[in-house]
Simulated scan of single mutants.
Amino acid sequence: MTYLVGFTRDEPLPNQNQYMEMVNLYADNEPWQIFEGANSYTRYFITPQKKQNPKWKRVSRTVGKGTWKPQGKGKEVFDNKGRLMGYVKSLKYTYGKSENKNANGEWLMTEYSLYDGYLHAREIKNKGYVICKIKKKRKPNDHNEN
């Protein structure tokens, strides 16, 4: 969450290019397309949230021909002073077409978002972004160590 606070304030972030990419996860690419060429089962991204309407709080999590479905309500995260800092939500990718049902449940996402009132408006340089950790579930016969 502190990484997201730093990004929102437009502060230099340690190892940003090494561990995290800026990618619009809620666009046209399916999860496996985003992972093409990667030697890892887990990757981190900074992505803009896609609001259904700019005035609403509701967020659209459609991507390509599928959607990221929430797996519960999510959890509140508090800073060391006990103030609400943000939220952590778990999501699972489901593919919209029946011909690719094997992708359902294979991709998991953890989305980290800031509470709107956590930072003062003057501190915010990059508004409406979240950090997402996407993980491809390993299959029993996978022997890759990454």
Score class of each variant (00 low, 15 high):
N39C: 12
E30D: 11
V130M: 04
L84T: 08
R138W: 06
S60I: 07
A38H: 08
M20L: 04
I124M: 07
Q49C: 08
P70Y: 04
S98F: 04
M20C: 11
Y19W: 14
K137G: 09
N15P: 01
N17S: 09
L114C: 03
I46Q: 01
M20K: 00
G86W: 03
K73H: 08
S98W: 04
R9M: 12
Q52R: 15
M109S: 02
Q18G: 07
R138E: 13
R138K: 15
Y93C: 03
R58L: 15
H143Y: 11
E99F: 12
P140M: 00
P54D: 06
K55C: 04
P140S: 10
L84Q: 07
K92A: 09
K92D: 07
K92N: 10
Y118S: 06
D116F: 07
K101L: 02
G86D: 13
E21I: 07
K127M: 12
Y26L: 15
L84P: 06
N126D: 10
E36S: 10
K139W: 11
G105N: 07
E145F: 11
T42L: 00
K97C: 12
D142Q: 08
G82D: 09
P12I: 02
E11W: 08
H120K: 15
E21C: 05
L4W: 03
T67I: 12
G66L: 03
N100G: 03
M1V: 10
L84E: 06
S113Q: 09
